[in-house]
Structures are given as structure tokens and as C-alpha cells.
Design a binder for these strands. Structure first.
Lengths: 258, 258
DNA sequence: ATACTGTATTCTGTATACAGAATACAGTAT
DNA sequence: ATACTGTATTCTGTATACAGAATACAGTAT
């Protein structure tokens, strides 16, 4: 899966897959679902985590069949029952499709899916930042600003994973501070779906810089107590991210589809 | 569960449970999940539907244990496997809690849950109406206005179920027209959770009239092409609904909790 | 009477068995 | 050569079996 750059850029860039492969899916899993891990995980929890990582690595560009028998063998010879329960969970969360009496399949993601996910995410994160504003401490905000400046300083050194970490942590900070458990879970599910094409997504330094600038602006607005500005900027930030992903992954020039 | 009226009202009123009992849960299920029913339902689908109805009838006021063995027997002697899959689905959707190695339980809903659900619903429906506005035909809008006037005319005849039907259909009209499948599903899940205390909720004619007036205003704004007004009114409508439910169900006078 | 310990019982989570649907494929007709 | 039919095989969905965790409870000590 080679992507054609929509604009030339002489600095380092790359798809996530090129740079990190297997280790990234584990990192992504921790960032997205780490906090929700059970104290005493069941066999189903283990199967869910392992299959999640595989699905993310397969990505959203091809439909691939997942056989419960094969997976059960590969996951240390466990039985089909917990594997099927894990697969059911992934279907619920929108990462897989189950074709009745024909099995489980990874899903392909279209431009329509990108629109759905980012539109939803925009509405949810704007709600999150409004709920979070009075609950975020100055220390938390400043700590994240520092982290942001640190990453911006050496984006060239280890670009993509470091950027993804700080990006996810920024959005997680705001989401968690909302205090709305259902909102937190919904956003985690959307991010889980986004991870499906994160592996093919191409990250340009320019795009990462723009994102970090947006984050900075939002954090500064929150520090200044200007919630409306933070919300507007966050909405714009997510619209921009959507356009970036659409341009990168779906090059057929359908940017006009609103 | 007897509710104390926060204001006296001499016209007919009542909790849903008093008026409809078992038949209502089936009606609610159809309104919420009817469109998503599979052509060839599996045993799990059947178990899911039956258990959903039971859970709704139990409601969100008491924690009740659900034994997979007992349910399997009651659902025509099916086995535990599909019952557990259905229970897992209900946990995913927030209607049940699974206590690891101790079983499945219905959840009690607190004022915090009402806040979470309605805040989320507000953000999602506002997004829905913005996406739906250019996609709703004048015929659809007018048809719903007619239905609304019909119900308002004879609210006294069969108040609660008729009101619930037209209420859910109004929100479903807007949600579906958004064209965003994930948004539609998220809102169906929230409504599913709302159904948990719908049975204890008390419907006063005044409250129903206010809701219908809101609906009318939103539909007229959409007919006039005034999307912003429709969105604002919808946001207000849902905030009002939240306050109404909080006042009805949680009488401890915690309206101040924002 | 109350707290504690150890055993019996119940019940959950996972493994395995089995029936029937979907699929592959060989054989036949055109 | 291609389309079709019927049988063999594979695989999914559900039922059943089983091990170990949670619970109930009787018996004992204080």
C-alpha cells in the first residue's frame, strides 16, 4: 500500500505501518483501552486484545476472513467459545462484520465511514471540552503544554509514534475530564475504529505541526478560561483532521463530498 | 414505586408501568430496534430481544440478578451459550452489568446516569438535525406535523403510549435522516438505556404538551429552512426533558447538579 | 451469642460435541 | 466448453460437559 503524496515535502514522513508495524498496535491498544482493562482479565479479555491488534494490523483496506477455529489455535490453543465472544465484541464495536452463518470479516472503510466517524467525533469532543473546561486543573493543562512543546522540539527524531502518543493523550485528557463515562466510552470506540486506517494513514510533518498548533491553541484557550474559543478550535481541528485523512487515503478527488 | 406529583394536575396522568405493563416493552423494542432486525434471526437475536424486554420491565431502580441457566430454561429450553452471548450484548449496550465470575445484573440508574445520557443525547441529536436538515423532504416534515396534531387532539384518549410513539418517531425521523449509521446506532443505544426508567417515569399531560410544542417548533423551523433555530430548539427540548426526568424520578431536590 | 474455619454445593467460564447450513467439487447434460 | 445437479466436506451456531471459583452453611472455638 503505497500512498502518493498530495504535496511534496522534503522532510521525513511515512505511513505508520512502514515505521512501526507490530509494536504499534500494542501501543495503540494501551492508549485507547488501557484504562478500561479489568483487574483479573478473563480468557475473553485476552482474546479480545489479541484479535484487536491483529485486526488493526490488517487495516481497513481489505476484507479478510477471521476463522474462530484458526484464531483459537493461534491464541495458545484456547477453545472457540471465548474467541467467538471476543469476535462478537469487535462486531459490536464496529471493527468487524459478521455475515450470518458465514463467519466474521474485517471491514473495509470508505470515505462515507470517515465522514461518519469524524462528524460524530467532532460533536462528542466539543461536548467533552465544554464539560471538561471547569474540571481541568491548570497543572494538567500546563503539563500537557510542556509535553507538546517537547514533542514539537524533536518531531524529526521519532516522528510518527511520538506524535500519535501526544495526540491521543491530548484528546484523552479532555475526554476523561468530561466526567461522562458514556461519552468517554463512545470516543474510545470511535478511536478504535480510526485505528483501522491509522496504519495506512500517511503522516506529513506539516500535518503534525498543524495538529500540534491546534492543540496548543485549545490548551491556551482553556487556560485563559475561554471555553467557546476552545470548543470552536477543537471543532475546526477535527474537521481539518477529517479532510487530511480523506485526502491521504482516498485520493480519488472526492473532497467535495460533505 | 409510587411517584409524588411535583405539581398538581387534575387531568389524566400515570407512570407507563401502571398503564401498559408487558405490552409496552415489545412496542418500545420495535420502535427502537425494529429497523435493525435481521432477516433471519439467530437464537442469540431471539434471546437478546426477550431478555431486553424483561430488563426494561425490571427497570433501573433495583439490582436484580439474571441467571443464564434460568433464562435459558424460560426461553423455551435453549442452551446457555446463546443466552450468555445475548447477555454480553446487553452489557456492551449499557443495560446490564457483569460482575466477573459472579454473573449478570441489572443496573440501577442514578441522577449521574441521567445527566450522562441526556448530555450525550443532546450533542448527538443536534448533530443529527444539522445533517438531516438538507435531506428531509417537505412531505416527511408535513406528514409528521399532521401526526403530531392528531395526537395533540386526543392526548386524553390514550395518552402515554400514543405520546411515546409520536415522540420516538419524531426523534427517529431526524436521526435516520442524518444518514450517519454510527450516529443512528449510538442514539438507539441511548434510547435503549432511557427505556430502563421509562417504566417508572411519570408522564403529565402538561409535560407531554410542552414536548409536542417543541416538536412542532422544530418541524416548522426545518420547513422554513432555519436550521440554526431547529438545532437550538432541539437542544433546549432535550435539556428540558432531562430536567423533567430528574425531577420526576429523583425527588431528592438535586436539580442544582449541572 | 458471635466469630471463625473447613467442607459441600452452586454456578460461572471455558472446552468439547454435534446438527445443520454453506461451500466445494465431481459428474452429467447441453 | 459451459451450465447444472447432487453429493462430500467444511464450518458455523448451539448444546452439553467439565473444572475451578464463589457461596452457603455446618461445626467449632471463644
Amino acid at each position: 500500500m503505497t500512498s502518493i503524496s498530495p504535496e511534496t515535502n522534503d522532510r521525513k514522513k511515512g505511513t505508520v505501518a512502514e515505521v512501526f508495524d507490530e509494536s504499534l498496535s500494542a501501543e495503540l491498544f494501551n492508549l485507547i483501552w488501557g484504562q478500561e482493562r479489568a483487574a483479573m482479565p478473563t480468557v475473553v479479555d485476552y482474546a479480545y486484545e489479541e484479535i484487536w491488534k491483529r485486526v488493526i494490523m490488517i487495516g481497513g483496506s481489505e476484507e479478510q476472513r477471521l476463522s474462530d477455529v484458526t484464531l483459537a489455535e493461534q491464541l495458545g490453543g484456547m477453545s472457540r467459545t471465548p474467541v467467538r465472544q471476543a469476535l462478537d465484541r469487535l462486531v459490536q464495536e464496529g471493527l468487524l462484520r459478521s455475515d450470518p452463518r458465514r463467519g466474521f470479516w474485517t471491514r473495509t472503510f470508505t470515505a462515507q465511514d470517515i465522514h461518519e466517524i469524524y462528524d460524530l467525533r467532532g460533536a462528542l469532543e466539543v461536548l467533552a471540552v465544554r464539560l471538561a473546561a471547569p474540571r481541568l486543573s491548570h497543572e494538567d493543562l500546563k503539563a500537557h503544554l510542556d509535553a507538546l512543546y517537547g514533542v514539537r522540539a524533536d518531531l524529526d527524531a521519532h516522528p510518527v509514534l511520538r506524535f500519535l502518543q501526544v495526540d491521543i493523550r491530548f484528546h484523552t485528557l479532555i475526554t476523561r475530564a468530561s466526567g461522562n463515562g458514556r461519552l468517554i466510552h463512545s470516543l474510545a470506540m470511535l478511536r478504535s475504529q480510526l485505528s483501522m486506517f491509522q496504519m495506512q494513514d500517511t503522516f506529513y510533518p506539516k500535518r503534525m505541526e498543524i495538529a500540534l498548533n491546534d492543540h496548543e491553541q485549545i490548551l491556551l484557550a482553556l487556560l485563559a478560561g475561554n471555553v467557546d474559543e476552545a470548543a470552536d478550535c477543537l471543532a475546526r481541528h477535527i474537521r481539518n483532521a477529517k479532510e487530511g485523512v480523506l485526502a491521504d487515503i482516498f485520493l480519488e478527488g472526492k473532497e467535495g463530498v460533505s
